[in-house]
Simulated scan of single mutants.
Amino acid sequence: MINTNNNIQYKCEARFLNVKSRKHLSPIKHQKTNFFIADIFNNLTFQDDIASMEHPLFALKAGDTKDRLYQHGNITIQVKPTSIGLATIHDKDIWIYCISKLMQAIYEEKEISRTVHFTIYDYLITTNRHTSGSDYNRAKDALERLSGTRITTNIETAKTKEAHGFGLIDAWRVVEEKDGRMVRVSVTLPDWLYRSVTSKQVLTISPNYFRLRKPLDRRIYELARKHCGNQTEWKIGLKLLYKKTGSTEPIRNFRIGIKSLVATNELPDYNVSYDLNNDIVIFTNK
């Protein structure tokens, strides 16, 4: 007599093993080969704000120009793009870099404001980007999308809950050399985010977050970091995880992405497993 449950399990495992595994982490582009670069890496602990880790404020696809509405429980988020598209989760690196700079200043008991100043070279190096002219231009495009994307939400930060709209950044300014090369940048964060930072509603993230190639992987890491944290494990139904990521891809593609993460085990900080029978994704702390 054939054991039906074992047969089903075997077929599920066979399908899982047939998923093509692609590298999820890009190489480290800048080795710590001199004191200057080592200083950038060693002194800055990367921080992300809890609210945007929990809720999908950023698009996972470049060039997305559709209005988006996300509702979960009593939280409502409406996102409106610019003509060049919604700010993406790769654009969010500027947010993370600014938050990290502010938190560093707070730890060092320095005076801070909503405006963060930095050199574009430091930003590119620290977030594992190349430093060619096109990379400088892409950073400028990211600032445009962050400034133009409008969020209307009732998310609570620093125990303050209000329905209001804001840009992902309030303003930005770039100082350029005569050859047009960007040198220094000033970014003014929205009050909503600044409140979150000053009340320390942030979490430390892995530097390897910036090595994750796929937007979906970055979003999944954020959710794992927020919910698993330092706990042993976090379980979530695949459909709910799909909703929380804000993915606009068909759920079958999302499922393939999860299987690929399981196969490569390249998600920073967390192991990922997938219970096929119950459609549950399990994150365990590495």
Score class of each variant (00 low, 15 high):
I120L: 15
K110F: 06
T127H: 07
T119H: 06
I106E: 05
I99C: 14
I120N: 08
Y97R: 05
H117Q: 09
D91V: 04
A105T: 00
E108G: 00
I94P: 04
W95S: 07
K110Q: 15
Q104V: 02
A105F: 02
I125L: 14
L124Q: 05
I112A: 03
I94L: 15
L124F: 13
I106W: 01
I106Y: 03
I94C: 06
Y123Q: 01
E108V: 00
V116T: 11
H90K: 09
T119C: 08
L124N: 03
T127W: 04
I94R: 09
Y97A: 06
D93I: 01
K92C: 03
I96V: 15
S100G: 10
T126L: 15
Y107C: 02
R129F: 09
I120W: 06
I99W: 01
S100T: 05
I112G: 01
I106V: 13
I96P: 03
S113V: 04
T127E: 08
I94S: 03
I112V: 15
A105C: 02
F118C: 08
I94M: 12
H90D: 12
D91R: 05
D93P: 01
T119K: 11
T115I: 10
I94Q: 02
V116S: 09
K110L: 13
C98A: 15
F118Y: 12
D91K: 04
H117S: 13
T119A: 04
I96F: 11
N128F: 05
C98N: 09
C98K: 09
I125D: 02
I99E: 07
K92E: 12
H90T: 05
Y97Q: 07
M103H: 06
R129M: 07
V116P: 04
S100D: 10
Y121M: 14
H117M: 06
C98Q: 08
T127Q: 07
L124E: 04
E109I: 04
L102Q: 01
V116E: 06
R114H: 07
L102C: 11
E108H: 09
K101E: 04
I99T: 15
N128C: 06
M103Y: 13
E111F: 00
Y107G: 02
H90Q: 10
K92D: 03
Y97D: 07
S100M: 11
Y107N: 14
E111T: 14
T127K: 08
Y123S: 01
Y107K: 12
V116A: 09
Y123P: 08
N128I: 06
M103N: 13
I106S: 02
Y97V: 03
I120G: 05
A105G: 00
M103P: 01
I99D: 02
E109M: 04
K92P: 01
D122A: 13
N128P: 10
C98T: 08
S100H: 08
E111L: 07
Y97W: 14
Y121N: 11
R114L: 06
T119V: 07
Q104C: 11
Y121D: 13
E111W: 00
W95Y: 03
Q104E: 15
I96Y: 09
T119R: 11
T115A: 13
I106Q: 07
I94E: 09
T119I: 09
L102F: 04
I112N: 00
